[in-house]
Design a protein around this nucleic acid. Structure first.
Lengths: 103, 103
DNA sequence: CTCGCATGTAAGCTATCACTTACCGTTAGC
DNA sequence: GCTAACGGTAAGTGATAGCTTACATGCGAG
């Protein structure tokens, strides 16, 4: 059910912006916070949330913490999305929940 | 930017549950609310949010409102997700944001 | 028309969330 | 050791989101 966490974390616009910035490659906190309309501690908090959800990973480089994307964290979300196009599953579930029909 | 709305709407567990129930086929509000730990008005409110986000659609059938999935509403979200695997785009953006490198 | 079911809407409450400021630990350079 | 830069954490605050109850609306049956 990691997709649930991913959805919750990515729902916030600022946090999503931080996440999207990482698409361009690994970045230290300073760079991620630059230009955003929130303070640096706010970005730190967002990064923590992203990390807890498995969406980013962090490594130390001297005094900096370099954050990078973790695409595996998005995979469950993608899989979940795909279940809405899986017509076989949908049909099965429909029958399972409606053992009898009036028509 | 419809994916932003989709993310925000699907982030709530109860609302997501309602949405997932629709995977099994069109349902009236009553059926969607049955068994959920929240009141029926709460479900109505969730359905409104889902509808506003383009994730469900609604049609009247006598006194009932039949809600059904709208997969198009999920497409933008899926496309957005895919951008995180698009390495060409990622490389391009990386270069665009870093015109010079120390190496 | 009257009654009842199915559903949307309004108002109010509470918990949560994102933000800010202040502070602390850590690393690098002199 | 002293200082400066990077960044994580704590405490407090205001806004928002989801929930509930009460009420309004619309359709169908008799």
């Amino acid at each position: 059910m990691a997709y649930a966490n991913a959805l919750a974390v990515l729902a916030d616009p600022t946090r999503r912006k931080v996440f999207e910035r990482l698409r361009a490659g690994p970045r230290p906190v300073n760079a991620l916070a630059a230009g955003l309309p929130v303070s640096r501690p706010a970005v730190s908090q967002h990064l923590k949330a992203l990390k807890d959800a498995g969406l980013v990973e962090e490594r130390s480089e001297g005094v900096r913490r370099i954050y990078s994307l973790r695409r595996e964290g998005l995979m469950e979300l993608r899989d979940w999305l795909d279940t809405f196009w899986d017509d076989a599953l949908a049909a099965f579930k429909e029958e399972a929940e409606k053992p009898e029909r009036s028509g």
